[in-house]
Nucleic acid binder design. Sequence first.
DNA 1: TGAAGCGAGATTGTATACAATATACAGCGA
DNA 2: TCGCTGTATATTGTATACAATCTCGCTTCA
Lengths: 216, 216
Amino acid sequence: MDSGLPVKRTIADQVAELVRQRILTGQLKGGQPIRQEHLATELGVSRIPLREALKQLAAEGFVTITSHKGAVVAELSIAEVEELFDIRLKLETWLLQLAIPAMIERDLAALEKNLEEQRRPDILPRWGDVNWRFHEVMYLPAGRPITLKLLKNIHDKIDRYLRLEVTMRSGFDRALREHDGLIAFCRSRDVPAAVSLLERHIRDTARGLIASLKVQ
Amino acid sequence: MDSGLPVKRTIADQVAELVRQRILTGQLKGGQPIRQEHLATELGVSRIPLREALKQLAAEGFVTITSHKGAVVAELSIAEVEELFDIRLKLETWLLQLAIPAMIERDLAALEKNLEEQRRPDILPRWGDVNWRFHEVMYLPAGRPITLKLLKNIHDKIDRYLRLEVTMRSGFDRALREHDGLIAFCRSRDVPAAVSLLERHIRDTARGLIASLKVQ
DNA sequence: TGAAGCGAGATTGTATACAATATACAGCGA
DNA sequence: TCGCTGTATATTGTATACAATCTCGCTTCA
């Protein structure tokens, strides 16, 4: 699956992955400072690979580094979340347009297999992952790997907040229905209908998340 | 201008900036390996800040790091260049749509000031910079800072190849005319005309660059 | 009172030293 | 000759040590 990963993983890479996961899962909360010595000793490594990991995460937008003051977990304002959803809207609808004509049976089967997983009762903890993979599989036939990687980064940043959304159950069933509809339109190669549903899907997700952010 | 820069710049930041510039200007060519010890002694620093700089550049996509083998200057395939231009097309037309209704006289004046600079005879070495700033100023009123930063990164990656384009003179005058036209449409608030011209502008640039890449 | 100055401790930034891994090449055997 | 293997060298990865900077409470003085 992750064919891009280096075979021999360096400590810095492992730490980057771990810290990223902690941020995504909310173990490290937005605005929280990251003390190098503390985290390094906890992980049983020196500060050198940790610092390299933090530099990488900073470039990816997960932490913010200020000289001589350290790294803090990045926070997204509501405006920034809205902007990220807008970027998704523009790029994902484009990819879907490209992907649908290029889809073969195997792609559609993969989408349906993913949808089955989404229906399993114990999905919630893995929802972020599975949901992204659904979209990824759908856009893969478009053959635009750079865009896909960019979108994954955006999804990761957003998912952190989706996890916090306690009222997710409400939007959850809707998301499943929309995913189901997307597959149907992909099957019938109905590009306009699929794109329009995807637009609604992304906008609905955005609306739900932003509403729940504004409450807090 | 660069208000986002840290006040106290760390060695790692300076090195990252310098290496990025060397890549952009072609002093470091695509595929070329970067030997840490060598570059570090040349710059008079230790390998630690250099390594942090390389991690950052890797996350930004300017170099590729392989464990225990080192960093090499990233190369873009023709397909990747095409994809980057496609992303530009989707995002920049969107930003322009948002920006035009929000433009005030000051923005238009800034565009014209930039265009004047483009007309100066000694522009070629600074073309990459000035050209990006034209687009940046044009999209700034859209109020989408994340997208803008993303686009800057894409421009940087592309500009490296634009610099190589020896026959730039041909596309150069055309670019100036198109920039001129864009300002006119912005002034008249003619969104459809501006967007359509911008589409052509980006496609023209892409076509010219890709043609010259295919020759080599 | 309160605002500026000044350490002591905490924290980050960088250099040096060493360990782990990769690369190049010589020697050996079939 | 060809291919394998082991060793020397080069290069990267990480730990430790130290330097630079920041934080925060205290003092001092207007």
